[in-house]
Design a protein around this nucleic acid. Structure first.
Lengths: 221, 221
DNA sequence: TTATTGTTTGACTATGTTGTCAAACACTCT
DNA sequence: AGAGTGTTTGACAACATAGTCAAACAATAA
């Protein structure tokens, strides 16, 4: 599909990607933002900086483009749960998970947005993908759920429903990216220095979830 | 617009609402699910169980219907923060807020979905509405933020960034509704008995946020 | 009953969106 | 240069969606 090669390797567009990749990246963004039905091929073409018929040249139909995009977004969604499984204290595992997961959602925020859009639209394709992933690899949150269960066993943490805990942490990590404009409006730091804001958020989330709000003595191990 | 009255009061449709209200309710759902661009007037008409031209008869254009719907959804979004401000311990205030807010999001889940869709689509109307609401009434989370500050002052809870805390709680309450199909798939209880699941979730969220995971002695006041 | 008012319906038009195509273009190889 | 290959472009066709309209309908009041 692309044998053409010039001196500088790839027929690089304005942002260092070949046409097909630029279309794909643009489609990622637009489908995530607007959902399948809300996305317009013209909008994707504009985002990619190409003429609309090129979309058809590379991906034939909107449906096929969408399927290709959805496949990758779902993979990114699954991969974001692959936290580095620490063996030591659960405190470290949790801190690492929050840090890693939030970075992952930031990097692949379109995957998060797409998941949300699919859920809201109630499309069946998501259910199938989830079922398939479940069948082959089990719950993507398996590793963390098991870590929670071990930590309860060892007595490091209070008994807690691992699924509820995971949902709480995932929600707290993902939701701010999904509602970024509102967050930026509500919190000045998020608008001025987003990196700093994210680090603050990671620290906050760990503190609240692990230690809770209630006043404690010097129980910091 | 509707002076017509028969013996049984309202020309009630299949679900006890007059035509205009049924269109409005249907539009609420479809716009929330699919976003403004993703929504089709035919889909709204089907959801309302009426013929499409009636949409135009009552609301003239898609734009006008959308604006009417958006206004109400935004109001519902704002109102959901009006928690009963307890005067006593912050523990009670927090528990009440979580309970009240989660019920509110459940009842007005389309408002939550619409907020998310608007944020993701990056539409400017939301920014204007937020700015307007800010200017007239201040941040909708003001009451809770102040309660957090008082609790920190009184020493009941650890120092914490109130805005981060609010975002964490709101995320943990809203996100499950926005990703309901996935939640139902991941947690059997959510699929079987949603009421029970919600109560479990309220209790979990309060426990984790207030007391945290780390093992504690018998510090339950 | 008939006139009046508001509502509903089906047919229609205008516009937007997707998908197709052949011609133009760029690049490589001989 | 000219043939061959893959890419890009503009014009077009087919279909979907929004919006209009006049006629049919239902209810009420005179």
């Amino acid at each position: 599909m692309s044998t053409q090669v010039n001196e500088s390797e790839v027929p690089t567009g304005s942002d260092g990607l070949d046409t097909e990749a630029r279309i794909f990246e643009a489609a990622l963004k637009v489908f995530a933002r607007k959902g399948k039905d809300g996305a317009r091929l013209q909008e994707i073409a504009d985002e990619a900086g190409i003429h609309r018929p090129l979309l058809h040249y590379y991906f034939r139909t909107k449906q096929q483009l969408y399927e290709a995009v959805a496949e990758r977004l779902f993979t990114e969604f699954l991969m974001s749960f692959d936290a580095p499984a620490e063996g030591g204290r659960f405190a470290d595992t949790l801190r690492a998970f929050i840090g890693h997961y939030m970075d992952s959602v930031r990097k692949h925020r379109h995957a998060a947005m797409w998941m949300v859009a699919e859920n809201m639209a109630g499309s069946p394709i998501l259910g199938e993908m989830l079922a398939r992933a479940f069948a082959t690899e089990g719950s993507p949150q398996r590793a963390m759920v098991e870590a929670v269960e071990r930590a309860v066993q060892s007595g490091e943490i209070q008994p807690v429903n691992p699924r509820q805990l995971m949902l709480t942490v995932v929600s707290a990590c993902v939701f701010p990216f999904v509602t970024l404009p509102t967050v930026r409006m509500m919190n000045p730091l998020a608008a001025e220095d987003f990196d700093a804001y994210l680090e603050e958020r990671k620290a906050h989330l760990f503190e609240v979830v692990y230690h809770g709000l209630a006043s404690r003595e010097v129980s910091h191990a």
